[in-house]
Nucleic acid binder design. Structure first.
Lengths: 202, 202
DNA sequence: CCCCAAAGCATAGCAGCGCTATGTATTGTT
DNA sequence: AACAATACATAGCGCTGCTATGCTTTGGGG
């Protein structure tokens, strides 16, 4: 082995693809490498083809999502935190709708499957805390509830990002999450308060 | 005006595209018309291009969905019926996953927007009945609750059809719908029973 | 009744796509 | 210093959706 790949080139291509996606320019093999000085072969050297590029884009998307979720503060009210995580999830999806669409496009596959799990883990951890402080029943399946919360977030994000529902439909997250958390043992009024508090920034 | 389009040709192309989608064959302009005797121009005559074909496919998908939902029996238990509608929605999505994906793909647009509304209407009607028989509070927003039920169904369908969640994750619909309907005033145990009954065929 | 204009339809070809074969340039290893 | 393996550039292939161009068909007016 004598010549090594330059990770910076790889990162540059990913960043450029993300920017083109954001600017709604079609991301094609030739248009992607144009202006970077690299040739079309670079995409094959670093990603093995366009499919590999999309896979890397999904990874990038989950990375950004994880970063956003990590920024959500953990307060002494875990139910509030769960709602805040949901709000951050939806904010992320709407901030870069095309990247979000790529993340869940056909052929869902990740270079590192742990990235998607990490997203769920943030939810699981909050659920566990809610159980710990007595808001949720102890027999609540944390992983299951995390998946259910994800389903609500993704369902709304997908329907809004893809067009069927208007932006303000995102507000449906509040009653839906409140209903779900109440069903886990939280007291209805307090639950509603926590969810609304977590949903509205600050 | 002298020569008129043949609606049968249009229908034939749509059916063929749906079949190719089901058989996971790539639906391209040339492969679509091959074997039909028609030339590539037919797609432009009847759909104005491939975009128009996809739009027609979305319409077809919503049509099939509406037909499936219409087959769901209306019983004296509207909460059960709501769950049955959700089950039918998910069954439809999983029966033809590629068509379902097309229905919500980027560029969501319908020839007849009423088709999507009709889907929601089946839910709204069931919600109204639930209010009528005293299962749901009278102040429940029927349209809002229908959208929320749709969000759960689409969220699960999308996550399963696109890969992130395994098939058995569809079972999450039961606790989610039960939680949602309970939050609308239904008694928890009865709600759970109704939802489980509607979810399981028969 | 006939005829012609308007529409459907077939053919051919264009630009762009992802991909790959091939040759060249580069660089860590021995 | 020479080698070998890898990165990279170029050119071209088969495919894509689309359109320009004629030919064929056919319904409605003189």
């Amino acid at each position: 082995m004598v010549r090594t790949k330059d990770p910076a080139v790889r990162a540059k291509l990913i960043q450029r693809a993300a920017q083109m996606l954001r600017e709604r320019q079609p991301v094609t093999l030739r248009s992607l490498v144009a202006g970077t000085g690299a040739s079309t072969m670079a995409v094959y050297t670093y990603f093995g083809g366009m499919d590999g590029l999309w896979k890397a884009m999904r990874q990038e998307g989950f990375g950004r999502l994880a970063a956003r979720l990590a920024e959500v503060p953990r307060t002494e009210d875990p139910v509030r935190d769960l709602a805040a995580l949901g709000a951050a999830y939806l904010a992320n999806a709407l901030a870069e709708p095309d990247l979000y669409r790529v993340m869940f496009d056909a052929g869902f596959e990740l270079e590192d499957p742990a990235a998607a799990d990490a997203t769920l883990h943030a939810l699981v951890e909050a659920v566990e805390r809610a159980k710990g402080v007595g808001r949720f029943r102890t027999d609540v399946d944390a992983a299951g509830l995390a998946v259910q919360s994800w389903t609500i977030g993704h369902g709304l994000a997908s329907l809004v990002v893809n067009g069927p529902l208007p932006r303000q439909a995102l507000g449906n997250a509040v009653p839906m999450l409140a209903a779900l958390f109440t069903s886990c043992g939280d007291e209805a009024a307090a639950c509603r308060r926590s969810v609304e508090s977590g949903w509205t920034p600050h």
